[in-house]
Amino acid sequence: MNINFKAGENNDVETLLVLIQEFYQLDGYLSFNAVVVRHALIQLLNEESIGRIWLIQHQNQAIGYVILSFGYSLEYGGRDAFIDEIYINPAYQGQGIGKQTIKFLEEVCISLNIQALHLEVERENTSAQNFYHRVGFKDSDRYLMTKKLNQS
Protein backbone atom coordinates (compact mmCIF):
# COMPACT_ATOMS: atom_id res chain seq x y z
CA MET A 1 0.00 0.00 0.00
CA ASN A 2 1.27 3.44 -0.93
CA ILE A 3 1.52 5.70 2.12
CA ASN A 4 3.32 8.89 3.04
CA PHE A 5 4.44 10.53 6.27
CA LYS A 6 3.39 14.12 6.81
CA ALA A 7 5.31 16.03 9.47
CA GLY A 8 2.86 17.20 12.09
CA GLU A 9 1.98 20.88 12.17
CA ASN A 10 -0.08 23.00 14.55
CA ASN A 11 -3.07 22.84 12.18
CA ASP A 12 -3.06 19.01 12.56
CA VAL A 13 -3.90 19.06 16.28
CA GLU A 14 -7.61 18.30 15.85
CA THR A 15 -6.91 15.39 13.50
CA LEU A 16 -4.28 14.06 15.89
CA LEU A 17 -6.63 14.32 18.87
CA VAL A 18 -9.20 12.15 17.07
CA LEU A 19 -6.57 9.55 16.17
CA ILE A 20 -5.07 9.55 19.66
CA GLN A 21 -8.49 9.07 21.24
CA GLU A 22 -9.13 6.13 18.86
CA PHE A 23 -5.79 4.61 19.87
CA TYR A 24 -6.43 5.03 23.59
CA GLN A 25 -9.88 3.43 23.29
CA LEU A 26 -8.55 0.54 21.22
CA ASP A 27 -5.68 -0.14 23.64
CA GLY A 28 -7.94 0.19 26.67
CA TYR A 29 -6.24 3.19 28.26
CA LEU A 30 -8.53 4.38 31.00
CA SER A 31 -8.28 8.10 30.53
CA PHE A 32 -8.12 10.47 27.62
CA ASN A 33 -7.80 14.07 28.72
CA ALA A 34 -8.06 16.21 25.58
CA VAL A 35 -6.76 19.30 27.39
CA VAL A 36 -3.60 17.54 28.60
CA VAL A 37 -3.02 15.79 25.27
CA ARG A 38 -3.57 19.02 23.29
CA HIS A 39 -1.03 20.86 25.44
CA ALA A 40 1.55 18.07 25.04
CA LEU A 41 0.95 17.92 21.26
CA ILE A 42 1.41 21.66 20.83
CA GLN A 43 4.63 21.57 22.84
CA LEU A 44 5.94 18.64 20.77
CA LEU A 45 4.98 20.29 17.49
CA ASN A 46 6.80 23.48 18.45
CA GLU A 47 9.97 22.04 20.02
CA GLU A 48 11.76 19.75 17.56
CA SER A 49 14.51 19.13 20.13
CA ILE A 50 12.16 16.95 22.22
CA GLY A 51 10.70 14.86 19.41
CA ARG A 52 8.67 14.68 16.24
CA ILE A 53 5.24 13.62 15.14
CA TRP A 54 4.01 12.42 11.75
CA LEU A 55 0.62 11.66 10.33
CA ILE A 56 0.56 8.39 8.43
CA GLN A 57 -1.43 9.07 5.27
CA HIS A 58 -2.98 7.06 2.48
CA GLN A 59 -4.19 9.14 -0.47
CA ASN A 60 -3.66 12.29 1.65
CA GLN A 61 -6.05 10.95 4.32
CA ALA A 62 -4.74 10.45 7.87
CA ILE A 63 -4.93 6.76 8.77
CA GLY A 64 -2.62 6.89 11.77
CA TYR A 65 0.22 8.69 13.46
CA VAL A 66 3.58 8.08 15.07
CA ILE A 67 5.38 10.03 17.78
CA LEU A 68 9.13 9.90 18.31
CA SER A 69 10.60 11.31 21.55
CA PHE A 70 14.31 12.06 21.96
CA GLY A 71 16.60 11.24 24.86
CA TYR A 72 20.22 10.49 25.63
CA SER A 73 21.83 7.30 26.87
CA LEU A 74 25.40 6.55 27.89
CA GLU A 75 24.64 2.86 27.54
CA TYR A 76 23.80 3.31 23.85
CA GLY A 77 26.53 5.84 23.13
CA GLY A 78 24.58 9.07 22.73
CA ARG A 79 21.22 10.21 21.50
CA ASP A 80 18.41 7.70 21.56
CA ALA A 81 14.76 7.84 20.63
CA PHE A 82 11.57 6.28 21.88
CA ILE A 83 8.56 5.44 19.74
CA ASP A 84 6.15 7.02 22.19
CA GLU A 85 3.00 6.13 20.25
CA ILE A 86 2.28 4.42 16.97
CA TYR A 87 -1.27 3.96 15.74
CA ILE A 88 -2.61 2.67 12.46
CA ASN A 89 -6.37 2.50 11.99
CA PRO A 90 -7.40 -1.18 12.27
CA ALA A 91 -8.87 -1.12 8.74
CA TYR A 92 -5.33 -0.53 7.42
CA GLN A 93 -3.44 -2.98 9.62
CA GLY A 94 -1.84 -6.08 8.15
CA GLN A 95 -0.95 -4.32 4.89
CA GLY A 96 2.73 -3.53 5.52
CA ILE A 97 2.15 -0.01 6.85
CA GLY A 98 3.70 -0.81 10.22
CA LYS A 99 6.82 -2.15 8.53
CA GLN A 100 7.03 0.96 6.32
CA THR A 101 6.59 3.16 9.40
CA ILE A 102 9.41 1.45 11.31
CA LYS A 103 11.70 1.71 8.27
CA PHE A 104 10.85 5.42 7.97
CA LEU A 105 11.64 5.97 11.66
CA GLU A 106 14.93 4.12 11.36
CA GLU A 107 15.94 6.36 8.46
CA VAL A 108 14.95 9.48 10.40
CA CYS A 109 16.93 8.31 13.43
CA ILE A 110 20.02 7.55 11.36
CA SER A 111 19.83 11.01 9.76
CA LEU A 112 19.63 12.57 13.25
CA ASN A 113 22.60 10.54 14.56
CA ILE A 114 20.40 8.60 16.97
CA GLN A 115 22.13 5.47 18.24
CA ALA A 116 19.19 3.39 19.51
CA LEU A 117 15.45 3.22 18.96
CA HIS A 118 13.18 1.98 21.78
CA LEU A 119 9.49 1.23 22.17
CA GLU A 120 7.13 -0.33 24.65
CA VAL A 121 4.33 -2.77 24.00
CA GLU A 122 1.58 -4.12 26.23
CA ARG A 123 2.47 -7.50 27.77
CA GLU A 124 -0.79 -9.02 26.50
CA ASN A 125 -0.32 -7.76 22.94
CA THR A 126 1.59 -10.75 21.61
CA SER A 127 0.78 -9.98 17.96
CA ALA A 128 2.46 -6.56 18.29
CA GLN A 129 5.39 -8.16 20.12
CA ASN A 130 5.79 -10.67 17.30
CA PHE A 131 5.68 -7.87 14.72
CA TYR A 132 8.33 -5.83 16.56
CA HIS A 133 10.57 -8.90 16.83
CA ARG A 134 10.21 -9.47 13.07
CA VAL A 135 11.36 -5.90 12.31
CA GLY A 136 14.44 -6.22 14.52
CA PHE A 137 13.48 -5.11 18.04
CA LYS A 138 14.80 -7.19 20.92
CA ASP A 139 13.37 -7.65 24.39
CA SER A 140 15.86 -6.05 26.77
CA ASP A 141 14.56 -8.29 29.56
CA ARG A 142 13.99 -5.22 31.71
CA TYR A 143 10.89 -3.62 33.11
CA LEU A 144 9.88 -0.12 32.17
CA MET A 145 9.07 1.57 35.46
CA THR A 146 7.39 4.94 35.71
CA LYS A 147 6.75 7.52 38.38
CA LYS A 148 4.41 10.34 37.41
CA LEU A 149 5.68 13.62 38.80
CA ASN A 150 2.88 16.01 37.92
CA GLN A 151 -0.59 14.65 38.59
CA SER A 152 -2.54 17.22 36.58
Rank of each mutant, 00 (worst) to 15 (best):
M1S: 08
I3E: 11
N4F: 14
N4M: 14
F5V: 09
G8C: 02
E9V: 10
V13W: 00
E14F: 00
E14M: 00
T15V: 15
L16V: 11
L16Y: 10
V18M: 10
I20S: 04
Q21C: 10
Y24C: 00
Q25C: 04
Q25Y: 04
L26Q: 07
L26A: 07
D27E: 15
G28A: 12
G28H: 13
Y29F: 13
L30D: 13
S31G: 00
F32Q: 01
N33A: 03
R38H: 12
R38C: 07
R38T: 14
H39P: 00
A40M: 04
L41Q: 14
I42Q: 08
Q43Y: 15
Q43P: 04
Q43D: 15
Q43K: 15
L44Q: 15
L45G: 12
E47T: 12
E48R: 14
I50G: 08
I50S: 12
G51F: 09
R52L: 15
W54V: 04
I56N: 05
Q57K: 11
Q61C: 05
A62G: 14
I63H: 08
L68C: 07
S69H: 12
F70E: 10
G71F: 03
Y72E: 01
E75K: 13
R79P: 01
D80Y: 08
D80T: 08
A81T: 08
F82M: 11
I83K: 03
I83W: 02
I83T: 02
E85Y: 12
I86L: 15
Y87L: 06
Y87R: 04
I88F: 12
I88T: 12
I88M: 11
P90D: 05
G94Q: 07
G94P: 07
G94M: 05
Q95L: 13
K103W: 03
L105N: 10
L105Q: 06
L105D: 09
E107T: 15
C109R: 03
C109Q: 01
I110G: 01
I110M: 05
Q115R: 12
A116Q: 07
L117Y: 03
E120N: 10
E122R: 15
E122G: 14
R123L: 14
E124Y: 12
N125C: 05
N125L: 07
N125Y: 08
A128G: 14
Q129I: 05
N130I: 01
F131T: 07
Y132P: 07
F137A: 02
F137M: 06
D139I: 10
D139Q: 09
S140V: 11
S140W: 06
R142N: 12
M145N: 03
M145F: 06
K147W: 07
K147V: 10
K148V: 11
K148A: 07
L149A: 00
L149T: 00
L149S: 01
N150E: 10
